[in-house]
């Protein structure tokens, strides 16, 4: 039996390109030059919220994973735009944190609001909310997602919520501060907290971020997610 020359040639090129890839990655991992590698390629720590694979939509209509928030400190809260009392207060608290930071600190910090209300908080509703609340573009991220993903994120943050008879959401209030790697460094629950602690956490996480940034952390590849 003779080998088909075309297939053999294809197989050769395939094998050659695979081994080339292996060589490439094999070389890149141990002596990775820190500045030239995309930070997204580094493995996330096992404590990172950015391990989540769920997809979210921003008020600009962008489809993102939470890992897109990586690189800056994030102050995160869950809310819904029709909320009359607690959510405006949470957003107000986040703005107070924002206001307490210096311009240079603010450059390394983002604020993220994630809606409970998958049904009614459309991209447009979030966009309107950004306008009425005057949330700075670039610094504030507003996200909506599917009910299962909202439930999962709430579970991860430790936020309890449920829809009540009037279609409103009863929910616990939480402000979570994430370091640039997506690890929770501070959780504050309840409204009208003393925000000094949060401001300190944000500052130290942001300072740590500036120092830590050039360090690459090869931790191996992530297994495919069955969820």
């Amino acid at each position: 039996m003779r080998e088909n020359p075309i297939i053999a040639r294809k197989a050769f090129w395939f094998a050659a390109s695979v081994s080339w890839l292996v060589l490439l990655t094999g070389c890149a991992i141990p002596g990775r030059p820190s500045g030239s590698v995309d930070p997204g390629a580094d493995a996330l720590s096992g404590q990172s919220l950015y391990q989540l694979d769920s997809m979210w939509t921003s008020d600009e209509g962008r489809e993102i994973k939470l890992a897109a928030l990586r690189g800056r400190v994030q102050v995160v809260a869950m809310m819904f735009t029709r909320c009359q009392y607690a959510c405006p207060a949470i957003v107000h608290d986040l703005k107070r944190i924002e206001g307490a930071l210096s311009d240079s600190e603010r450059a390394n910090v983002g604020f993220t609001l994630i809606s409970f209300d998958s049904e009614r908080d459309s991209v447009e509703a979030l966009r309107d909310y950004r306008q009425t609340q005057r949330l700075a573009p670039g610094r504030w991220t507003l996200l909506r997602g599917g009910p299962d993903d909202v439930l999962e994120l709430a579970a991860l943050l430790g936020v309890k919520f449920k829809k009540d008879a009037s279609g409103q959401f009863s929910h616990s209030t939480l402000i979570a501060t994430l370091n640039p790697e997506g690890e929770i460094v501070l959780k504050q629950s309840g409204l009208h907290q003393d925000l000094e602690q949060a401001v300190r956490a944000v500052r130290s996480a942001a300072a740590g971020a500036r120092k830590a940034r050039p360090v690459a952390k090869p931790e191996g590849k992530r297994a495919p997610d069955p969820r």
Binding site: Y85, L151, K160, F161, K162, S170, H171, S172, G190, L191
Partner: peptide, 16 residues
């Protein structure tokens, strides 16, 4: 259960 974290609301949104 899927929504175990709806079981109770602590520090409820509307002070209830």
């Amino acid at each position: 259960v899927s929504d175990f974290n709806a079981s109770m609301v602590t520090g409820d949104a509307r002070g209830d």
